[in-house]
Amino acid sequence: QSRWLGKHGELLEVDTQMMSISGSKLKLPTKPVYLHLFNDCLLLSRRKDAWKFMVFVHAKIGELKVKDLSQKLQGISGFIFHLQLCEGQQLKHQILLKSHTESGKERWITAMFPSDPLEDIEQANENYDTSQVQCIKSYQAQEHDELTLEKADILHAKTITSDGWVEGIRLSDGERGWFPKTYVEEITSRSARLRNLRENIRIKCVTQKLKVDD
């Protein structure tokens, strides 16, 4: 199996050994940590210089566990999640990671733990009240986890962050990715959302029938 890099970037490691209280506030010292997420493994490293990194721990994709702590640590700036790297059933390393933005945290979590897009679409089809957005101007993806949009695309909005990013699933083909909220508008009409879902199901049924006939 070939290995390819899906996502990389810098987050902050929260140093729990150096936590302190100043007045009524909890101070959380941090230090940079670099993540390289491949299709089969995750590497955590420290940057040595502009182009060199020293890896201090790694784990297979299927041996990662995560817990979002942002709601439990209210009042603390930044968005924090707890990442565990295992080897089999044994815990190899655990780390608290902090992002300055909600989208940064969410994009890392979804990159490490992607859901099945077909299951997401099926759930959207079964639940008529799921959020939908429509593209109002085309967008060209800038990162691997982003989705290129064409004007008039209809998408199921799976996640909308406080800093203006959306994780969406295009109804027409099931492609999933992130894009800026400014490129879409919410479909507020329930009847319009129902119509979009029914039309999507109708097109898929026709497509499947044509494949069977061939």
Rank of each mutant, 00 (worst) to 15 (best):
E146F: 01
E122S: 09
F38K: 00
E126A: 11
R47Q: 15
I160M: 08
A50L: 14
W165H: 06
L171I: 06
K105I: 04
D15L: 12
G23I: 10
T188H: 06
K98L: 13
D120G: 10
I80R: 05
W178K: 03
Q132W: 07
L5F: 07
E150I: 02
A152L: 05
R46A: 11
I154F: 09
Q132E: 11
S138K: 08
T101A: 05
T148N: 04
Q17M: 13
G62H: 13
W108N: 11
R195D: 11
V66K: 09
A111N: 02
P180V: 01
S22N: 12
I203H: 05
S2D: 12
K181V: 08
D15F: 05
G78D: 06
K25D: 15
N196P: 00
L85K: 08
I169T: 13
I160E: 11
W165F: 10
R3P: 00
K48L: 14
G62S: 14
D120Y: 00
S103E: 04
S2G: 13
D214T: 08
K92F: 03
K27A: 08
E175K: 13
T16F: 03
L69K: 14
L147P: 01
Y139W: 12
P29T: 01
L97V: 03
L147Y: 07
V33T: 12
A124Y: 02
K52Y: 11
I21W: 08
E119W: 07
L73I: 10
K65S: 13
A59D: 12
L26W: 06
L5N: 11
S138L: 01
L96Q: 06
R176S: 11
R170G: 04
T16H: 02
M54N: 14
I136F: 01
L28R: 14
H8P: 00
Q142T: 07
L171Q: 05
C135G: 03
S115D: 08
S20V: 00
Q74Y: 10
I61N: 10
S2R: 15
E185G: 01
L43H: 15
D153Y: 03
T30G: 00
I160Q: 06
I21Y: 07
V133G: 13
C205A: 14
L96V: 04
A192D: 15
E87V: 11
R46W: 08
S131E: 14
T30F: 07
E10N: 03
H156P: 01
S172F: 04
R202P: 00
M112C: 08
R195H: 12
H100R: 14
L12Y: 13
Q89H: 11
A192K: 15
H93G: 04
S70T: 15
G88M: 05
Q132D: 03
K72E: 15
K31V: 02
H58T: 12
I154H: 13
K60C: 12
H36K: 12
L37D: 02
V55R: 12
T30M: 07
F79P: 01
H58V: 04
K72Y: 13
S162A: 08
K98F: 00
I61Q: 14
M19W: 11
S191Y: 09
V55N: 12
H93D: 08
K60F: 11
Q142W: 05
E102D: 07
V166F: 01
G104P: 07
L35Y: 06
